[in-house]
Design a protein around this nucleic acid. Structure first.
Lengths: 243, 243
DNA sequence: CGGGGTTCCCAACAAAGGTTAAGGACACGG
DNA sequence: CCGTGTCCTTAACCTTTGTTGGGAACCCCG
């Protein structure tokens, strides 16, 4: 993996987040990043651990999830290339959830020590990374609304549209057909419903020719109806730092 | 309201969050805080606004919530004295949700300008405030799990125990009887259920002599059963910065 | 003290979602 | 190319939660 490509991925993400100065970009270039490959379906960091690095997703998909005592899992977020899903562990030392690869991934590990040195030296970058964790929190808020207030069809429509929007923001063309590598069981875990009901909902949206979700891919069939179901408003993603 | 009392409230909160140096405490004392009183049930900041201050809760209770197009409201968090519920607006300029007073409140408004100056001058304080927003996000994650995975009785038990724990952490004695000034309708909005169902669940827990929730107060009747229902594990609150 | 609003309470019925169980499609390795 | 495992699919039935509509309690204000 080309180092420059890794930086391009990171920069694209941070640039959508807020403007960068040349000195900041140079400092970012100094960051040591350890690139590692990860198999699909493996824990990257687990609940209870005290990681010493944060990880940048370079290729592939990850999810964050929490397991409760009764054995059920709740998926909290889906992560795509360019994101740093466990940046929060920089100041929250003990993990309170799991980070798991969904597909085979290329990951870039950045030590907390070097991140802390960077943020101490470059307040601009500190604020930008802080802001990134705040967007993370904003996405959790919307996820609460999704799971708490929308019926199952609306929940599914919403995560489909959120994922597509985020893929577009990070420069991945995601038109009417894009990757969403979750099994129906995992879709259920994301929406707070059982796999059987997830299947019902997927079937319904397919039969109504709104969206087709199969074999880890999404095909949007009726943009208007999908949008109406999801009530998706991308303001909570805070993509444009000037607004 | 005594200025020193306000600082005591803020310090108690930040101290549980991470250790403070004398120079940092001195810098905090320099922060200009505008104290204002708020009536119950009034918006403090609204979705879509661009606030210029963040607000410290000195007395009273607030909630954060989001309204969706179909008119339903989801409560995202409950806030108690010592917390800064909209600290995220420091770097996320446009509000993506509402902040509303539940009871009459005393609030301390701190301008973003002075907060930004403070965090630029004192990296320790910057990290502490950053960490505070990360705990906020951790609470949202648990809230997703609550709404997504637990049955209604468990959800109610969980927010009761979370609120009690947080009252204790900020130095408010909350034994078996404490204030939780939500109407049944608001409890429903927090749990993602209708007011009618909220009433059913409250009634059930009362009849089973587990917990009595009425007139804005909670009385814990059976600690063991309540804990079992809630599956409450306070790790996600990250109270002890050394762990 | 009286009246109007809010909050609480409840019942009957409807709908959404959970449970259990089982067969079929598909993918991969031996 | 056959077996094994994962994933998808469906049906029947059950439980939880939503809906509608009403009445009682309580509280504040005039």
């Amino acid at each position: 993996m080309d180092r420059e490509l890794v930086f391009a991925t990171l920069l694209r993400r941070l640039n959508t987040v807020s403007g960068l100065e040349d000195a900041d970009i140079a400092a970012l270039h100094e960051l040591p990043i350890a690139i590692r490959h990860w198999e699909a379906g493996r824990a990257i960091v687990s609940d209870g651990e005290r990681p010493t690095d944060s990880c940048l997703v370079i290729e592939g998909f990850c999810v964050r999830s929490k397991l409760i005592a009764s054995g059920q899992r709740q998926i909290l977020s889906i992560h795509i290339p360019g994101e740093i899903p466990d940046l929060q562990s920089l100041h929250l030392h003990r993990m309170d959830h799991d980070l798991i690869s969904l597909t085979a991934c290329t990951l870039g590990f950045i030590s907390h020590a070097s991140l802390r040195a960077l943020t101490r030296a470059k307040p601009n970058l500190a604020e930008m990374l802080w802001r990134d964790t705040l967007i993370d929190a904003a996405m959790f808020r919307e996820w609460i609304v999704n799971v708490g207030q929308r019926p199952a069809t609306g929940r599914l429509a919403h995560i489909v549209l959120e994922l597509r929007k985020r893929l577009e923001v990070t420069g991945r063309p995601a038109g009417d057909n894009f990757e969403m590598p979750l099994t129906q069981e995992q879709i259920g875990e994301a929406l707070g419903i059982t796999p059987v009901h997830a299947n019902r909902v997927i079937k319904q949206l397919r039969e109504e020719r709104i969206v087709d979700i199969s074999r880890g891919r999404v095909t949007v069939l009726d943009e208007a109806k999908l949008g109406e179901l999801a009530q998706f408003d991308d303001r909570y993603l805070h993509q444009n730092p000037s607004l």
